[in-house]
Design a protein around this nucleic acid. Sequence first.
DNA 1: CACTAAAGCGGAGGCGCCTCCGTTTATCTA
DNA 2: TAGATAAACGGAGGCGCCTCCGCTTTAGTG
Lengths: 205, 205
Amino acid sequence: MDDQQTATAQGAREAAAPKPLRADAQRNRDRLVEVAATAFAEQGVDASLEEIARQAGVGIGTLYRHFPTREHLVEVVYRREVEALCAAADDLASHHPADMALEQWMQRFVDYIATKRGLAASLRILFNTNSAVFSDLSGRVSLALRQLVEAAAAEGSIRGDVDASDVLHALGGIYSAPDTKDWRDRSRRLVKLLMDGLRFGAGKM
Amino acid sequence: MDDQQTATAQGAREAAAPKPLRADAQRNRDRLVEVAATAFAEQGVDASLEEIARQAGVGIGTLYRHFPTREHLVEVVYRREVEALCAAADDLASHHPADMALEQWMQRFVDYIATKRGLAASLRILFNTNSAVFSDLSGRVSLALRQLVEAAAAEGSIRGDVDASDVLHALGGIYSAPDTKDWRDRSRRLVKLLMDGLRFGAGKM
DNA sequence: CACTAAAGCGGAGGCGCCTCCGTTTATCTA
DNA sequence: TAGATAAACGGAGGCGCCTCCGCTTTAGTG
């Protein structure tokens, strides 16, 4: 009878009010994410959480308070990286001609994917567990790509008869290619090839 | 390739020529599988391996020698159960009219699946890692089902215009239904319903 | 049998996971 | 500035994973 707050009420209101963290807590949290990003990149998602806490200069308890499970931490790191990738689209767009921006972004996208190949299984579990994460992130990516494609098409530097989802599919094909030694080089060539295809007939619309 | 001893074949073939174990080793191995089957059924695939070894009366080292990873043990247990399920098809067929054999087998299939719902994620990983296991086992299941269906159709106790894969699909639908409290009862009713549908129009062709 | 090599055993030890709770600290009020 | 208090910290402790290697048992051989 002492119980006042049901579990449902608790869960319903997390998106609305992320309640501000205390300064030290925020600092520790940021530091953990930073270190975790490096650790996951270097050693995969099985990197030791105790080691991450140690390198971040906090106790293991602090890590677990901020990220109750390994998956929580992975999600935050992963989301941060995808957001950085999307942000890069804007940056490239404002510093390069539209077709170059598109090409460079795709190159970067492919490079990024390359570092994540080993994580495929973990990410699939993450997405199954919480498919909102997946749709959110993949939505951002395709939005970023669409903007680049449309800008280049509008500018006339690539053809106008393709849309972003075609391009995303083409990139997806690169991703699912076998994991050979020269994977990265080949991907680079494929992106260039794709760009040539896009440039072909530019302005004809 | 005429080569029969590929690297993959090495692990997968224990039925063919897995060099005979020493008597004590075989005893321990059997005991481990036995205990593991119970433990996995009761506590899921995350059951403690040390506890399994303890209950089997062997050291943890022995368990790991026989089953280098948790997945190996899971696979053996899982395979054993599926084989038992398939063997039951023959048994039922020789002791009951064909349609009753089919119905009872489907009931048993569904019950079996019910106990495995929590394992879905683990099994998916297992199947991804070693898809030969999946195709082998699902092949056996559909073979067993096909024999039951065809026998009943030949006997005239169910209609003749359905094939086994339809039935398997219908059962699959039951499997993917939401995991409610009365899941088992409802599945039972659905199997009966399916049987009625199969009996309807029996002997007409 | 007795002997021996090979096969098998098993548990200590090192590491990582995660929880729990006594201690510390940032922030708020007076 | 001092005091109060909720928030945050952190690491000890218990458990499970897995490896490693010295000891034991089995299955052959003479």
